[in-house]
Write a protein that binds this DNA or RNA. Sequence first.
DNA 1: ATTACTACTAAACGAGTAC
DNA 2: TGTACTCGTTTAGTAGTAA
Lengths: 229, 229
Amino acid sequence: MTDSQEWRHLFTLLKLAEMGAHKRTAKISTEYLAEKLVTSQQTASRYLIELERKGWIKRSMTHDGCLIKIDDAGTGELQKLFSNLRSLMEAAYPPSVTLEGTVFTGLGEGAYYIGKEYYLKQFVEKLGFEPYPGTLNLKLTSDYDVKARAELEAYPAVEVAGFKNEDRTFGLVKCYPALIDNKVKGALVTALRSHYDASVLEIIAPVCLRRQLNLKDGNKVKIEILIPM
Amino acid sequence: MTDSQEWRHLFTLLKLAEMGAHKRTAKISTEYLAEKLVTSQQTASRYLIELERKGWIKRSMTHDGCLIKIDDAGTGELQKLFSNLRSLMEAAYPPSVTLEGTVFTGLGEGAYYIGKEYYLKQFVEKLGFEPYPGTLNLKLTSDYDVKARAELEAYPAVEVAGFKNEDRTFGLVKCYPALIDNKVKGALVTALRSHYDASVLEIIAPVCLRRQLNLKDGNKVKIEILIPM
DNA sequence: ATTACTACTAAACGAGTAC
DNA sequence: TGTACTCGTTTAGTAGTAA
């Protein structure tokens, strides 16, 4: 993760790029750079030394200034920032939505539904994992979470088709891949039938979440829903 | 110009955007933000206060965390950074090339050429100004400047077509719009005929540069050539 | 002209803590 | 839980200056 040191370096790199140092070797004095950075000549000098140490730029000194070229590593950093910004700015949806809920024990019907062969096959295909036979039930506590959950309906989801057997019809299931407690990959599944209201989440994962995360009724759990672009 | 204060704010904004706060109101605790910024909870709190003061974000406090939405001003800043980066990363050429040379008195032939009606009309049309009838001659001093000048040949230029009159032929003139001494807009014109070698620049501008910039022979002048994308 | 060191000043940070 | 204040500590920034 980018720390505060890196920010300054990244911005210095950006200014150097604005002076053309990413396309060609440019003659840039510390005084001139300082002006662009709104800082002192000494600070600009220090930044350049730091950037050189990091391998982000190459320098060669001449009698009247130094020649600077942004190195591949530096260009890579700028590219990374650019890609990051692009995906943020061009995306229609936020990259993720985090919900928080309290663990409670359900009626065990989740297990019944997700165990159905036709659903199961699709979970493996579309989510990339075979769910542990049981759902983790979470009760949303705050207004914020209920609202945020409602917003999700408008976001793209992984759709698991419904089916019909001799007895009855099984509906479409919308899944939202998610990171549970910042640790386990799983998915939020829309209530298979509306046993629960809008303030309840059902989570599936390749493992037993209660065991894996050592959860008991009443514990709070964070669900970070990752929205595809 | 972005100062060091703004860098941190811009990066904080970026992190908030990564949490979806540019698309929706997101619940983000100062503790969580601090983690993403690799800093302390107190610092994250301070940043949020500063961002709010700037009008870059809107906040509303709840009993368990605060709801954050990046405001239009904030989104605008991110957009600005993004556009800036995009034009840098996607451009084939550096945005500008700065040359430095020493003023000297030429043979006065520049005035003769640029005064030609056919050229003059094109200067006005293509450069957007009627040049003062005379060129400022600059002698490039360092190796770097001579090399940089040579690179220019490969970059896009404003082309002023040549012509023929009863006496002789007047060749094509390549012009590079430029900022002279960070103050006056003008253009570098390729030696109309090669009186001078590669280490000489001829500059035109809507005003008399010698007078406007109070230049005398031997003075050093900076020419920032602005390369179109 | 430059760059960049040393020594000092200013600012940012974060521990403790109140709310 | 949360946020954000005070205040001592750490870090970044700059003036002066040598090379």
